Amino acid sequence: MKLYPIETGNFKLDGGAMFGVVPKSLWSRTNPADSNNMIDIAATSLLIEDGDKLILIDTGLGNKQSDKFFSYYYRWGNHSLDKSLKQYGFHRDDITDVFMTHLHFDHCGGSVQWNKDRTGYEPAFKNAKFWTNKEHWDWAINPNDREKASFLKENLLPMQESGQLCFLEREKRREFYKQLNFEVLFVDGHTDKQMIPIISYKGKTLVFAADLLPTAGHVPLPFVMGYDTRPLLTLKEKKAFLQQAADEDYYLFLEHDAHNEIINLKHTEKGVRHNQTFTFNQLFN
């Protein structure tokens, strides 16, 4: 097995929304805001090369939305999914499986693209299976008013219409592990049935933290996103996860942190805290 970080493109989000009820005087110490109160956000995917499988975890925002849509998110930098794949000698047509932690547009927008004449949409990975779970799919295609702006039908329905959509059944995770060779933790605080990949790699446990832990600045327990649909449940899930991650020395791959690629944790008198930051190459090369 080989792993590769895939930079799909950076953007910005409102710092207050990213930290909920936590005052700016606290969260800005780790995630400084610009004059518009926006903070740097990454959308870093993870590519797993394992035998004849080439598995991409999450796909970023994509590029098919309107200029007006992207004007809200202040894209910055020159990263793209295709350039990042090419860096490692791959093309999107090589991808066999796309695993989506959840179906918010910044995690699955790159899964679907315009067709050639821009009259409709098509899967952006023509040879891949697209993995979600039935409970989260139903949650996404019948969105509640709070999340409606995050679940976009143009990101979802083309995967189903193509016949490439697959559902991971929670009770059959062992069978899934045999197929794709990583474990999955289900969490419900951010959105219903978000899936967190847990990967054993080169003697270490690497967790693709997705929106359970967006950035290193979110490690303190009360630092919960305003986007979470069930913040009290997030607190419970996060507490259990942080304890286990510190106890077992997990390495956390931070999908949304533009400045801390991978971190580990430690126990302190104030609770679990950020310990060290690593680049992917420092840790695994």
Rank of each mutant, 00 (worst) to 15 (best):
M1F: 06
K2S: 02
T8K: 11
N10E: 07
K12H: 08
L13K: 13
A17P: 00
M18Y: 05
F19W: 00
F19R: 04
G20D: 09
P23S: 11
S28N: 12
P32H: 08
N37A: 12
M38Q: 14
I41N: 13
A43Y: 04
T44Y: 00
S45H: 07
L47E: 10
L47N: 10
D50N: 15
G51S: 12
L54N: 04
I57Q: 09
G62M: 02
K68H: 13
F70E: 02
S71W: 11
Y73G: 02
Y74K: 13
W76P: 01
G77F: 13
H79K: 08
S80D: 06
D82G: 02
K83N: 05
Y88K: 04
Y88T: 00
H91I: 02
H91R: 15
H91K: 15
R92L: 03
D93T: 15
D93I: 14
M100E: 01
H102G: 07
F105K: 08
H107G: 13
C108F: 06
C108A: 11
G109D: 13
S111D: 02
Q113H: 07
W114A: 11
W114L: 15
Y121H: 10
E122I: 15
N127C: 04
F130M: 09
W131L: 07
W131T: 03
N133M: 04
N133Y: 07
W139Q: 02
A140N: 04
N142K: 01
P143H: 07
P143T: 03
D145I: 08
S150E: 15
N155D: 14
L156A: 01
P158I: 08
R170P: 01
E171L: 06
K172G: 05
K172H: 11
F176I: 07
L180Q: 13
E183G: 13
V184H: 09
V184R: 11
D188E: 08
G189Y: 06
D192Y: 13
P197E: 03
I199S: 11
K204Y: 01
K204S: 00
L206V: 05
F208K: 12
F208Y: 15
A209K: 09
A210T: 05
H218M: 10
P222K: 07
F223K: 06
G226I: 10
D228E: 04
P231T: 06
L233Y: 08
K236T: 10
E237S: 04
E237H: 07
K239P: 00
A240F: 00
F241C: 10
L242D: 12
A245T: 05
Y251F: 15
L254S: 08
H256C: 14
D257V: 02
A258L: 08
N260Y: 01
E261H: 09
K270S: 14
V272A: 11
V272N: 12
R273F: 10
H274D: 03
T277I: 07
T279M: 02
T279A: 03
Q282A: 03
N285P: 00
